[in-house]
């Protein structure tokens, strides 16, 4: 565990908590893509099935349980508790265009053709594009609340920090996971446009507009 990996995990955790608290405190999930949140719940579920088969560390297990729990809690708040505030009309990204190709790719390109490994690969690929419904929604409505942009910033920062972690691990541990690295690069690139707007326009403004 290096500092980049740890701050990456904490950044990821911060993003998840920020979103959960935002919805809870404002009693509203307006501007949040329920579809992206379902995809993230699917990502965590398919990736962390190894909770049942292998123990890595207390840290690892704890974080996985927190991530899965928060993901389902978020989905519950959006689709059940605060369903009335859910902006379904603007959340129109066709998720099957992500899930189906990603599922096919996971079958074709993986480290090992076993159920758990294919599901892990599926989760890695799916995570890299899971934010697209959210970005699509923002581009459609043309704006995002500040707190939503903080959520996106930490969520994007997490994978960017993981990229540095992988460079570190390659040099110091000889660790190299091509699938995670390529998907991580794709994932980070998807946030670049947002990062630029967040840094240049986010300061001192109450709302962030993303040009379509």
């Amino acid at each position: 565990m290096n500092i980049f990996r740890l701050t990456g995990d904490l950044s990821h955790l911060a993003a998840i908590i920020i979103l959960l608290l935002k919805i809870w405190k404002t009693r509203s999930c307006a501007g949040i893509s329920g579809k992206s949140q379902i995809l993230f719940a699917l990502v965590f579920t398919s990736r962390y099935l190894d909770l049942l088969t292998s123990f890595i560390s207390l840290y690892n297990t704890t974080m996985k349980v927190i991530y899965i729990g928060c993901a389902y809690a978020t989905v519950y708040l959006i689709y059940a508790k605060f369903k009335a505030t859910y902006d379904g009309n603007h959340d129109t990204f066709r998720v099957e265009f992500l899930v189906v190709p990603v599922g096919g790719l996971a079958f074709l390109v993986n480290h090992d053709f076993s159920p758990l490994e294919i599901l892990w690969t599926f989760s890695i690929y799916l995570e890299s594009v899971a934010i697209l419904p959210q970005l699509f929604m923002i581009s459609k409505t043309g704006e995002a609340e500040t707190i939503t942009t903080h959520y996106l910033f930490f969520l994007g920062l997490y994978r960017a920090l993981y990229l540095i972690n992988w460079i570190w691990r390659f040099y110091f541990e000889g660790f190299f996971d091509m699938i995670a690295i390529v998907a991580g690069v794709v994932q980070t690139i998807l946030y670049c446009d947002f990062f630029y707007l967040y840094v240049t326009k986010g300061e001192g403004r109450s709302q962030l507009s993303i040009p379509t």
Binding site: N60, S114, N165
Partner: peptide, 10 residues
């Protein structure tokens, strides 16, 4: 690979 090295990242 999965059998040799479990995925230790999150």
């Amino acid at each position: 690979k999965a059998d040799e090295t479990p995925h230790d990242e999150l």
